[in-house]
Simulated assay, not measured.
Amino acid sequence: MPGDRAVRLEDVTLVRGRTTVFRGLDLELNEARIGLIGDNGAGKSSLFRLLCGLDAPRSGRVWINGADVGGADHRARSVGMMFQNPDEQIIFPTVEEELALGLEVGGLQRRQAREQARAWLQARGLGHWAERAITSLSQGQRQHVCWLALTIAAPRLLLLDEPFASLDLPGQALLDHEIRQASQQIIVSTHLLNHVRGFERVIWLAEGAVRADGPGAEICAAYEADIVQRVAAHALRIDAEANVA
């Protein structure tokens, strides 16, 4: 069994419908900040779903904190995931109630959880958000509520799936800062490479396999160069077809 600090996938095969998403995937994820990049359909969201137990592998094992995600050990459940669409994640009608949920799951009574959520928001200059209806918030603000709900619940591993997609520039800068300051291990899946370029490790997924894995600046540059080559090749094919026609 992997060590208690390890996040590891061992020979994982994941099949969804008729599509094999991963075949024999091996990964060990121990760095404090890891970026996950690649085209749409490369397997980034599927990897997150495996890590938080939403999908089960057809074969192989997924270990977190020394425990099998598919088993009964509670250590494997200390994972929080932020979805691409905040409306798929938010349950309660007000900000205060949404933040209190994670505290209630952790064992606090409802009144205590709400009081702590209000105090937590106040300490971050967001006390006026406590009683706001989720429906009154912009998409970016709802995304920020999802981040706040994750951090107040304090799981050991945070999985952020396209967390910057609906944020304006100030919102992106704030989330960047909070990611740097957070004590948890964080894995960020994103198409906005500048947010992970400075990470100690970035993994480039392509068609369900690891295309490259290494320092953020190096891997992001390689991915960008590959895109330039693919776009140029596509343009040449278009031109050639036009000339034939």
Rank of each mutant, 00 (worst) to 15 (best):
P2H: 01
V7A: 03
V7I: 14
D11K: 12
D11M: 01
V12A: 05
T13G: 01
T13Y: 03
L14V: 03
V15W: 01
G17W: 05
T19W: 08
T20M: 01
V21H: 05
V21T: 12
F22Q: 05
R23I: 06
L25F: 02
D26W: 09
E31W: 02
I34H: 03
L36H: 06
I37L: 12
G38R: 06
D39P: 10
D39T: 06
D39V: 04
G43R: 00
K44Y: 05
K44P: 03
L47Y: 04
L47V: 01
F48G: 02
L50N: 04
C52G: 00
L54H: 09
A56P: 02
R58H: 13
S59F: 03
R61K: 15
V62D: 06
W63V: 08
G70P: 02
G70C: 08
A72C: 08
V79S: 02
G80Q: 05
F83Q: 02
F83R: 07
N85K: 10
Q89V: 09
F92P: 01
E96D: 12
E97R: 13
L99F: 01
G102N: 04
L103M: 06
E104Y: 04
V105I: 15
G106H: 05
L108K: 14
R110F: 09
R110P: 15
A117I: 01
A119I: 00
W120K: 00
W120N: 01
A123V: 04
G125Y: 10
G125F: 11
L126Y: 12
L126I: 07
L126V: 07
A130P: 08
E131W: 07
S138I: 03
Q141F: 08
R142W: 03
Q143I: 09
Q143G: 11
V145Y: 08
W147V: 10
W147E: 09
W147A: 10
L150W: 07
T151R: 15
I152H: 03
A154E: 15
P155I: 09
P155T: 09
P155D: 09
L159I: 06
L159R: 08
P163S: 11
S166G: 05
L167D: 05
D168I: 07
D168Q: 10
L169Y: 12
P170R: 06
G171S: 08
L174C: 11
L174E: 15
L174F: 10
L175A: 07
L175E: 00
H177L: 13
Q181S: 13
Q181C: 14
S183C: 06
Q184N: 09
Q184A: 11
Q185G: 10
Q185E: 00
V188G: 10
S189K: 03
H191V: 07
L192H: 12
R197Q: 14
E200G: 15
V202T: 13
W204G: 06
A206H: 14
E207L: 10
G208I: 07
A209W: 00
A209E: 15
V210N: 08
R211C: 13
R211I: 10
A212P: 06
A212S: 15
D213K: 05
G214R: 08
P215C: 09
A221V: 02
A222F: 02
A225F: 01
A225W: 02
D226G: 13
I227S: 01
I227C: 12
V228W: 03
V228Q: 14
Q229I: 11
R230H: 11
V231Y: 00
R237K: 13
E241D: 14
N243Y: 11
N243A: 14
A245H: 11
A245F: 09
